[in-house]
Design a protein around this nucleic acid. Sequence first.
DNA 1: GATGAGCGC
Length: 278
Amino acid sequence: MPVSATNWADEVDGEDQPQTFTDANGITTIIEYRTNDDGKKVKVTRRTQKKLIHDVVNKAVAARKKWPKFGKEKGNKPGPDPATTNVGDNIKLKLSSTGQVVQEVDEQHEAMKAQLQNKKILCRICKGDHFTTKCPYKDSLGMEDAAAPASAPAEDAAPAAEQQTGSKYIAPHMRAGASSDSKAGSGSGDREKRDEQPTLRVTNLSEDATEADVSELFKRFGHISRVFLARDRETGFCKGFAFVSFTMREDAQRAQEAIDGRGYDNLILRVEWAKSSA
DNA sequence: GATGAGCGC
């Protein structure tokens, strides 16, 4: 195969002077031929750091900033709007002289974050004071149409419930429709009572799922009266399915629709209405 | 793929 004279990589012979080449990205390559201890001629290739790649990316980012905004952002000025945009940490890693990896936080982004700190942050999933994208429930429950519970507020919010409704707080066991054995997981029950509650059967749970996992997953839809996780009698591992009873049929209904087909622990959960066993 | 526990005073 003929070798192109312009292909510097193949120009090996008779060049004792260092050669330098700069490519389109501004990366400079230096080639020199040295004589080593054994008297042999060796080729030494060095390149300047690829720092210009970084600049190229930033140029593209800068260009994008000038694009007209569209959708709900239409007509807004360039740059992120704190109401809709989460400015994350831009962390660079660099090697220190001791070989340890050192974290460097980009100062520009720190400044940006500080600027946005005064703004209110409200998670659309759980109403916590973090961004929706940072919600701890995002992976398991991160559904866009996160339906707020109609009959029960989220997250052990007894005092909050009082504030929200403006009426007197009613303890769960005193509420209409609450069962006498309202302790979730107590499994105390006579079957008749159990079977008249709106109960879901959850299948395809992983074997290390616990009652707590299941109730965490479902409690945001409303008050749960009972969680039963089928465990292997000997090993104690989850047998892959569980029953979740709600106080309110509507809550169970919404939970069924919302969680059925959702991923949890790398598995796709199935949620159906339970049939009474007999 | 699956339908919940224990049985004694």
